[in-house]
């Protein structure tokens, strides 16, 4: 499984003794009895401040895994804890970025009002909201779209709005479900770099689901590979590539290519 730890250990942020989230022997069976085993005894930690990529083929249950981590549904067996406490229901401290931004944004609310939704949820006073929203609009490059409705924006812009809304939660972990999966390649690369800069700025802990192997390596401190039928973790790698990363140079780095080769085989051959 894992290999070559020592160098990467030094790169990890301090205070990572307790993991942010810990997934223990989590299984999920749907339907039945006997039902279909979707996830099979999955165990891993999300370390404090790390960017963890989870990659797998379609149908491997990776979205389901993220929903379990969010508390949107309970596992059949096993336990998930966040900062030591069991996850039983969703919490504002765990922000979720959904893949399908068209169904995650409120189409009747402007961009500003969509971002403000999180502030309403947190009970932030009305007077304070405008300043917070303005700051987030600026951070995500959405100032000019503030008064527009989601339906008037491109996919990339809509996903920016969703990320801004999640940031407004001031979460302690970001759970991202293939957030860039529906975007074109150029937009995706732009958002990848923005997300990495953001994660570094805010020292965010991120669990990032994707089916795109290169994206997983490019963004992640670590990459987990899930296999399908039933969903299970079959490989874990420390990426070990320096930050900030670069769309061309990083992707041409021999270590990047080595990871890519290794994981590519895993995703294809079973």
């Amino acid at each position: 499984m894992a290999h070559g730890h020592s160098a990467q250990d030094l790169m990890r942020p301090a205070g990572s003794a307790q993991p942010a989230m810990s997934v223990r022997e989590v299984s999920l069976t749907l339907g039945g009895p006997p039902g279909r085993l979707i996830l099979d005894a999955i165990s891993f930690d999300v370390r404090q401040g790390e960017f963890l990529s989870i990659v797998g083929p379609s149908g491997c249950g990776k979205t389901t895994l993220l929903r379990l981590m969010a508390g949107l549904m309970p596992p059949t067996s096993g336990e998930i804890t966040f900062e030591g406490a069991p996850v039983r229901r969703p919490s504002l401290s765990r922000a979720i970025v959904f893949q399908d931004y068209t169904n995650a944004l409120l189409p009747w609310r402007t961009v500003s009002a969509n971002i403000a939704l999180s502030l309403e949820a947190r009970g932030v006073a009305r007077a304070e909201r405008d300043d917070r929203v303005a700051a987030l609009l600026k951070k995500m490059g959405l100032q000019h779209a503030a008064a527009q409705f989601p339906g008037q924006l491109s996919g990339g812009m809509q996903q920016r709005v969703q990320i801004a809304r999640c940031l407004a939660q001031q979460p302690r972990i970001m759970l991202m479900d293939e957030p860039f999966g529906a975007l074109d390649a150029i937009t995706r690369q732009g958002l990848q770099d923005e997300l990495m800069a953001l994660a570094a700025d805010e020292k965010m802990t991120v669990a990032f689901i994707t089916h795109d192997l290169e994206e997983a390596i490019y963004l992640g401190d670590r990459v987990f590979v899930l296999a399908a039928n039933p969903g299970r973790v079959v490989e874990e790698i420390e990426v070990g590539l320096e930050r900030p990363r670069h769309q061309l140079l990083t992707r041409e780095d021999p270590r990047f290519l080595k990871h890519r080769h290794r994981l590519f085989g895993l995703l294809q051959g079973h």
Partner: peptide, 28 residues
């Protein structure tokens, strides 16, 4: 509106706020 239900749950909105902030405007 499963997507919106997830959003409401993730933001810890209760049933009253679900009605008021999500369901009613969506049904408008």
């Amino acid at each position: 509106r499963r997507g919106l239900r997830d959003v409401a749950a993730a933001l810890e909105f209760g049933p009253v706020q679900w009605m008021w902030k999500f369901s009613l405007p969506a049904a408008m």
